[in-house]
Nucleic acid binder design. Structure first.
Lengths: 332, 332
DNA sequence: AGCGCTAATTAGAGCGCTCTACAAGGTGAC
DNA sequence: GTCACCTTGTAGAGCGCTCTAATTAGCGCT
């Protein structure tokens, strides 16, 4: 399966290799006649440029690498889609690697990208220490899709999680709710910000926040709901850490024959496919995931083109109202 | 950001470039002393091998490419995970590209992989014509994760969809159901095989299959359920084309106050995260998606190592019983 | 000391392409 | 005819690495 090279094409067309190279790169410095001749030879031989050789010789790859810690997570795959869209617009290729949820895998995936000398890298929420991020950023333009305590030297793009939680509180308060509880997501990425945003928004309105610890899964939602409904004064609205957890809350309330949203309102977070299902129809927070990918790519390209100061972008989430929330019952 | 090359390391360590190359490739032909010296220089300079140059010079990439038509679809991402696992075991890298659901994108993604001269390619269900698959296979070892009418010259790995449908019928019949209906998935990939498997399995048992046309989505499930329950003799069990469609069926039955599974049993397909939710708890067909990726990689590696005859592998799905199915009501 | 043999190291020719610098062939103005 | 200038094409030196073949070092042995 020895593939033809540029020299083969040149010989076949009776021109120099340099001319073939120009044709392959769509140079305007080629006459129409030669171009046609070269293209004909190329397709006759089944020629296909060798990306390795091309990138080595040109010193640039025209490719951006995306490292995702977890391809299962629709969050990241949609982000990747945004990256692909913007990259395509800029005429760049996208190569994806994944760490498959193991930290060692993430390191290896980054190494692969670094060894490929991609023009830049987008890192989707890795578990790395900030110092490791810095090390990567020192080697190539980098955009991290994560939140840092200290503003890092690389660009970052992330969702304003606490703003999302604020939208939830605003929505519920407008509906007349005052006893609002949050089943949080523990220490999972984004969860602390959501809780903090919830607490802040409640205090801001002079309300007492109830929070209970949980996880980003269904079981945590069930447990949380059980504990909350056992309270002397149960909440009239429950804000779950994410849609999956909200599903658990919903399942538990159903076993108690508590009507949603008539007795208790439920809000999820993430606007996953779950939230849209007719059987669940969750009010939730939508994150413009594609937009994240797009902005990340745009920032990356700016960096590649020479910008030196770091930029940190915060993307606004939005509220999606479905049928799991309604006016507070006129209890007291 | 000019990165150090092998020559820089060699100069720093006071040895030849060839020696550095041997060290980088973990050759046993290097003395411990030199190895240590070289590694020290490499890390002092922050040296990182250039994959483009390495692959160009060695003529092999040690990488397998995976092209997925759609990263949103958890089916493919899990397949990719299987590929990654097997590849890691074989010491190969994995690079993923995606067509983002557009056919032009898929072509471009394949081109990228072909230009990269990866050692082989795994193609996750593209919309290509068989002839295009053949063209790709002529250029590099290829495994297609799709079903073909004519056995193609490349290797294929796919799920035995009709067997899955057969498992569903077997399960329902064992529970005493005889009036079983299938809301199909139209012409979506895999759907025709599921329908055919259903029909065959029913006839095999002397039962009359009822099928109604649909899609792989929730709405189709609702519509299908509505039409089926309007029948003079509605079915006692509904086999939906996939979990999403089953969710629609379930939602519709709930609006009719039909108890599941007491009055009507429901079966989904795919064993997605939906099926496992407490609020849904669907009996469904599980597809060993990771296994598909693993087998695909193994076949690919065999091919890379010289096997010439095509292999076509069929993976067995399995039944997962949850609480959406139960004994047939003792109606007649 | 000299020999054979293995282990360790190196020189140097590419891999397939890009890119700079230059050459050849027109064209038009004078 | 000569010169300047533009267009089109080409030679040839790399890009950073691998790999073959050759060289050198090291060691035990007579």
């Amino acid at each position: 399966m020895a593939q033809p090279t540029m020299d083969d094409v040149a010989a076949h067309a009776g021109v120099s290799r340099a001319l073939v190279s120009l044709v392959m790169r769509d140079s305007p410095r080629v006459s129409d006649a030669s171009r046609a001749k070269v293209l004909a030879s190329a397709s006759a031989l089944g020629y296909r440029p060798n990306a390795w050789a091309r990138n080595l010789a040109s010193g640039q790859t025209n490719t951006i690498g995306v490292m995702l810690n977890d391809l299962h997570n629709p969050y990241f795959t949609e982000v990747a889609e945004g990256v692909a869209a913007s990259a395509a617009e800029a005429g760049m290729e996208v190569l994806i690697t994944s760490g498959w949820q193991r930290e060692s895998g993430e390191q290896a995936a980054i190494e692969t990208l670094l060894n490929l000398r991609t023009d830049g890298i987008v890192i989707g929420a890795a578990r790395f220490a900030p110092s490791f991020f810095e090390e990567i950023a020192r080697q190539t333009p980098t955009v991290a899709l994560a939140k840092f305590d200290e503003p890092p030297s690389m660009d970052t793009v992330c969702i304003d999680e606490s703003r999302g939680a604020g939208l939830v509180v605003e929505h519920l308060v407008t509906l007349g709710h005052t006893r609002i509880a949050h089943v949080d997501g523990g220490t999972s990425p984004g969860a602390p910000e959501r809780r903090q945003g919830f607490v802040d928004a409640m205090y801001e309105r002079g309300l007492a926040p109830i929070t209970i610890s949980g996880e980003f899964d269904e079981h945590a939602g069930q447990e949380g709901a059980r504990n909350l409904m056992d309270l002397a004064e149960p909440p009239t609205a429950i804000f779950a850490a994410n849609d999956l957890s909200a599903t658990g809350v919903l399942a538990h309330l159903r076993t108690l024959d508590i009507a949603v949203p008539d007795d208790v309102s439920i809000v999820g977070y993430d606007d996953t496919v779950l939230a849209g299902l007719g059987a669940l129809s969750l009010t939730t927070i939508h994150q413009p995931r594609q937009l994240i990918g797009q902005r990340a790519t745009e920032l990356l390209i700016e960096r590649i083109n020479g910008r030196s100061e770091a930029t940190h972008e915060l993307i606004e989430p939005s509220l999606v109202v479905r049928s799991s929330t309604g006016p507070a019952a006129a209890s007291d």
